[in-house]
Design a protein around this nucleic acid. Structure first.
Length: 289
DNA sequence: CAGTCCTCCTGTCGGC
DNA sequence: TGCCGACAGGAGGACT
């Protein structure tokens, strides 16, 4: 579910509540999400002040005052909801928590942050900040698509000789980190590139960028920036931390639009759905080459 | 090594 | 209605 724009939106929603605040108590209702939660997870968080909240790829990183980092990933269905201090106080104690609400962070000022995750593909871990980059989750993670590193020259060099379809390359978090199924489809449509095209054909033999490489780099950045501005995309589970829905799903040109007309001006094509490496790809065969 | 497929888990939706 | 299969935003790990 949540790809870079959704995680970024969640990060911006949590930041003003978390940063400068201190965990007073953590309710942990099951021992694991996708992986076992760290030993003594709650106790290790209690009393810790949150100094900063960052996003890396699709991960949220809460920097704690003891040098540890609370790493959080939303998987497919992870969701944070904030109860501000006044609301948390006003509401009577719940009789039974919602079925898939697994973790509740209580903060010193009385606010609560509730994490729910139906499918439990999310993860949380506590990792020393100094070793974060060497941790298995982050070692080998690719560059940020909205950073300075993503240039046509860099991308062409990476794609050179690749025999995999460009759609799969966009989903490979070891190259560019943060793009998921929706934004891979949307970026390719925006760039006029077929998702079936082999990645290596987006560079010259010597690894130089082509017009297509440039178009794709521009499209990736543009679609992610637009989606962040719209507060992400809401399909099934994704919500802002205040419960609002994202709006970018209304701007989809291809995702989820199989059988509908292509929205590119003057194209006249029909959006098709194909399956690539087990996942749905939406594209317009008429204008994506 | 590169590339592909399966799997974790729960819920929903469409077809018969 | 009920049952069954397909599918859903991710990504680690096991294959070939």
């Amino acid at each position: 579910m949540p790809e870079l724009p959704e995680v970024e939106t969640v990060c911006r929603g949590l930041e003003p509540v978390l940063v400068g605040n201190t965990f007073s108590r953590v309710e942990q209702r099951r021992p694991d999400l996708r992986f076992p939660l760290p030993k003594r997870f709650g106790e290790r968080l209690e009393g810790r002040k949150i100094e900063a909240l960052d996003r890396r790829a699709k991960y949220l990183l809460a920097r704690l005052d003891d040098g540890e980092v609370l790493v959080m990933h939303l998987g497919m269905t992870g969701r944070f909801a904030i109860d501000h201090a006044a609301d948390a106080k006003a509401e009577p104690r719940q009789i039974a928590p919602p079925k898939h609400e697994h973790i509740v962070f209580h903060l010193n000022d009385g606010a609560r942050i509730r994490y729910s995750d139906t499918r439990r593909f999310g993860l949380m871990d506590l990792i020393p900040g100094a070793t974060l980059d060497d941790h298995a989750l982050f070692k080998g993670l690719g560059i940020e698509p909205l950073g300075d590193g993503l240039t046509p020259e860099w991308f062409a060099q990476k794609l050179k000789g690749k025999a995999t379809p460009i759609k799969a390359a966009l989903l490979d978090q070891r190259l560019i980190a943060g793009i998921g199924n929706i934004y891979a489809c949307e970026a390719l449509h925006r760039a006029g590139i077929s998702p079936l095209r082999l990645a290596g054909t987006l560079a010259t033999k010597s690894g130089k960028p082509t017009k297509k490489t440039e178009a794709l780099v521009d499209a990736i950045k543009a679609v992610l920036v637009s989606a962040i501005k719209a507060g992400g995309s809401s399909l099934r589970d994704y919500r802002h931390t205040d419960g609002r829905l994202g709006r970018f799903q209304h701007s989809f040109k291809v995702y989820g639009r199989a059988g509908k007309p292509c929205r590119k001006t003057g194209c006249g094509g029909t959006i098709a759905r194909v399956v690539q490496s087990g996942r749905s790809t939406f594209h317009c065969p008429a204008c994506q080459k």
